[in-house]
C-alpha cells in the first residue's frame, strides 16, 4: 500500500500523510468519499472528497444518515467477502 500515500496540508500549515485505501463514488448524490488511514495507524477513516479543477479537500461527514449509508456500504463489502452466515 506504500504507493498510495497522499500528502495533505492542514489548516495550521502542518502536513499530514495519509494512506488512501479506497475512493468511493456515490452516483446518486454525486459525491466522492475517501477511505484512508494515517501512516502506521490501524484505524480506518472516511471523509468526503471534494474536487475542483485545481484542487481538492477532505471534509467531515456531518450527516449521520450519510455516514450510516457509507458504513453499510463498507460493511457489505466485508460481508460479501467473508461469506459468513449467522445461525
Amino acid at each position: 500500500m506504500e504507493n498510495n500515500i497522499l500528502k495533505l496540508k492542514t489548516d495550521n500549515n502542518g502536513e499530514v500523510e495519509i494512506e488512501v485505501l479506497d475512493i468511493i463514488n456515490n452516483e446518486l448524490q454525486n459525491k466522492d468519499y475517501i477511505v484512508y488511514r494515517l501512516r502506521d495507524k490501524d484505524d480506518v477513516l472516511i471523509s468526503i472528497l471534494n474536487q475542483t479543477e485545481t484542487g481538492f479537500s477532505l471534509d467531515t461527514i456531518e450527516d449521520a444518515n450519510e455516514f450510516r449509508e457509507i458504513e453499510n456500504y463498507l460493511a457489505s463489502k466485508i460481508n460479501d467477502n467473508s461469506g459468513a452466515i449467522t445461525l
Binding site: 500528502k7 496540508k9 477513516l45 472516511i46 471523509s47 484542487g55 479537500s57 477532505l58 467531515t60 461527514i61
Partner: peptide, 13 residues
Amino acid sequence: KQGRIKVKQRTVV
C-alpha cells in the same frame, strides 16, 4: 492537485 485537509471530526470504521 494541491490538497488540503479540514477535518474537525473524523469517522472511524
